[in-house]
Design a binder for these strands. Sequence first.
DNA 1: AGTTCCATGTAATGTGTTACATGATTGG
DNA 2: CCAATCATGTAACACATTACATGGAACT
Lengths: 190, 190
Amino acid sequence: MRSKDVLLGLLSLHPGASGYQIRKIVDSVTGFFFSISLSQIYPLLRELSEDGLVTYEVQNLVGKQDRKVYTITAAGRAHLTEVLSEPFEPEYSLIAFRDFLLRLNLMAEFDNNKLSGFLEEAAAAFRQHLRRAQEEAVDASREYLTLGGRDQQRYLALWQRENRYLTADLENKIRWIEEFRLDLDSELGE
Amino acid sequence: MRSKDVLLGLLSLHPGASGYQIRKIVDSVTGFFFSISLSQIYPLLRELSEDGLVTYEVQNLVGKQDRKVYTITAAGRAHLTEVLSEPFEPEYSLIAFRDFLLRLNLMAEFDNNKLSGFLEEAAAAFRQHLRRAQEEAVDASREYLTLGGRDQQRYLALWQRENRYLTADLENKIRWIEEFRLDLDSELGE
DNA sequence: AGTTCCATGTAATGTGTTACATGATTGG
DNA sequence: CCAATCATGTAACACATTACATGGAACT
């Protein structure tokens, strides 16, 4: 997900926020898996308004500098829905889960049905990652030894240990997603 | 860790590799937590040789295009050791663990003592992350409701569920690091 | 005959960080 | 009085991706 779309999503959840406020929200709420600096926020907000996805209003605060507060437009909402409805096809990477969490975070407005679909899609993607990690665990050991290199045994032992973590981690992720999916209706009312 | 230093580390583990071969190694071995494209590799290798950290030799292969094979120099080894010995101070972020895995992967040449020190340092860092995540779980719920915004309850439920995952995940990571540290001597001989 | 692999690189573009620039208000 | 917070923005730099460019060998 592009930062621009994330900002749009945050504005959808927090209408009437300024650039400065957006950063505060990011720092306190999504900071662990998504961060952005002010010098990136301001140009992106300008672009969003140029694209007609948001509008802004200048607030003249007494004794303070003017503040621009942004609101998502109908076009913005349509665009956001489109982006969040795109198929979730994460590349084979540790940070794929970061994208998943970020996207899920912005989907609060979606109904449980759509949320469930997204979770199912994500679980499928990570199951595929798991299969690949397991395959690589088998043949990369062989492969590595043929490539040669210093400290082969040590490196291989390290790599295998890391790989065992990564597969267990993927299993955890998949389990979490599936459990969340089952708990959706009881935890997120209606 | 900068990509340039990662390449240096990979050349240390795989002496006599070419740019193309480096990519193959990255794809098959570190791909899940570190990836790099060829158009980034070639300029970086040139820089490394300009810095005197690696040397290269041109191999004239019959019927094939020349191949440049790179070898780390003494200066390169010194630099690598320096970089890998720097204190591990990851920022509060989901991808901090990626940096940890990457660095650990390149430390195969270090002895168990140094490895153990690094693992301890990393565990401490992630324990700090865990404390912070737990604190935020408590007061971000409050804070969020004051910020206002649409679909508050839904968003909050989502956020809390994600936060529970993140803290459990950090606990897993810390446990894995500590277990690995205990198993070091039995698993990575001498 | 066409695609993939080997092998090297440059150019253009996109994205993100750090530094710079300004200025009032609030709290210690 | 000094630091932090609020508030907006630009400029320079660093880093990464995608597209472009070339060409032989091997496989299908």
